[in-house]
Simulated scan of single mutants.
Amino acid sequence: MTSMKNRILLIEDDHRLARSVANFLTEQGFHVKHFISGENLDLLIESNSIDLIICDVMLPGTDGFKIAKRVRHTFDGPFIFLTALSNMEDQLKGFELGADDYLAKPVEPAILLARINACLKRNRRQQSNNEIAVGNLSINNQVRIVKVEQDDVALSRYEFDLLWLLASHQGTQVSREFLFINTVGREYDGLDRTVDGRVSRLRKKLEAVPNINCRISTQWGQGYMLACTD
């Protein structure tokens, strides 16, 4: 049985499905708050009273993709899409917006529960681990120090935030839009090159460090990736 401290926000306009999901999760020990749309979510999110969000995509008013983009400014917990949109393009868009998982309806309750528990477990592990290593590069998010072996690497606040995001997804492509939203703090219009400039400066600083064995590569038309070179 899952601890009652795990609080889930369910955003679903299908009342019958929402009731079924909420009842099941309540039986598993979760506390579930249900909203039928993205309206009036901001105060709830900002109150830090939610541990995980489950969100449909096709909703009245603001769709689930726009909700994800909006709440990622203030909510860094797990975000799961549960939707009838199952094509690859929609799934990729969901992950690019920062989703931790993407489930197509209908989903077996046991699978939904397993995915929720996996996301919560991963999130707890990330919260308890303030240091990430990529090759011989180490990043401590608590004291905001970057080292290559024993040598400090001086970075600006923006460069550190970019590096932390890339390191958190090491070895995988991170979209320009995701980096922009999570470091600049506003919606990406597809034209702004702020992130490109910051990544370029960060890359030059890292490449200037002797013996560093990781690098930032550009995924043309997609984003960036931090990975070991050995």
Results as ranks from 00 to 15, higher is better:
residue 111 I to P: 00
residue 112 L to D: 07
residue 92 L to D: 08
residue 93 K to A: 06
residue 92 L to Q: 12
residue 53 I to M: 07
residue 160 F to D: 10
residue 112 L to T: 06
residue 90 D to Y: 14
residue 106 P to S: 02
residue 149 E to T: 15
residue 86 S to V: 02
residue 134 V to W: 04
residue 106 P to H: 00
residue 121 K to P: 02
residue 101 D to R: 04
residue 110 A to T: 11
residue 62 T to Q: 15
residue 100 D to R: 02
residue 117 N to I: 12
residue 87 N to M: 03
residue 63 D to L: 07
residue 134 V to F: 09
residue 116 I to T: 10
residue 60 P to Q: 06
residue 115 R to Y: 07
residue 85 L to S: 03
residue 64 G to S: 05
residue 150 Q to G: 08
residue 135 G to P: 09
residue 79 F to P: 00
residue 61 G to F: 14
residue 118 A to E: 13
residue 162 L to Y: 15
residue 103 L to K: 03
residue 155 L to W: 13
residue 54 I to E: 04
residue 78 P to N: 08
residue 46 E to T: 06
residue 106 P to G: 01
residue 115 R to S: 08
residue 49 S to E: 15
residue 71 V to D: 01
residue 67 I to A: 07
residue 118 A to M: 11
residue 127 Q to F: 09
residue 75 F to Y: 13
residue 121 K to A: 10
residue 59 L to C: 08
residue 75 F to I: 07
residue 78 P to L: 10
residue 100 D to M: 01
residue 122 R to M: 11
residue 157 R to F: 14
residue 162 L to Q: 14
residue 77 G to Y: 10
residue 59 L to Q: 11
residue 154 A to I: 15
residue 94 G to H: 00
residue 61 G to T: 06
residue 51 D to M: 07
residue 127 Q to Y: 04
residue 105 K to N: 00
residue 141 N to R: 12
residue 59 L to W: 08
residue 105 K to Y: 01
residue 137 L to C: 08
residue 136 N to L: 09
residue 49 S to F: 01
residue 145 I to E: 11
residue 73 H to G: 07
residue 76 D to C: 03
residue 84 A to K: 00
residue 164 W to H: 15
residue 71 V to K: 05
residue 63 D to E: 03
residue 130 N to G: 10
residue 106 P to M: 01
residue 53 I to Q: 07
residue 127 Q to L: 15
residue 71 V to H: 02
residue 122 R to H: 09
residue 71 V to C: 05
residue 134 V to H: 03
residue 106 P to L: 01
residue 161 D to W: 12
residue 90 D to W: 04
residue 58 M to R: 10
residue 111 I to D: 05
residue 76 D to G: 13
residue 130 N to P: 09
residue 110 A to N: 05
residue 123 N to Q: 13
residue 118 A to L: 13
residue 81 F to L: 04
residue 151 D to H: 15
residue 52 L to Y: 10
residue 49 S to Q: 15
residue 141 N to I: 02
residue 148 V to L: 06
residue 76 D to N: 12
residue 153 V to C: 11
residue 46 E to Y: 00
residue 67 I to V: 12
residue 160 F to L: 14
residue 130 N to T: 14
residue 103 L to P: 08
residue 72 R to D: 01
residue 81 F to Y: 15
residue 78 P to I: 08
residue 139 I to V: 14
residue 77 G to C: 07
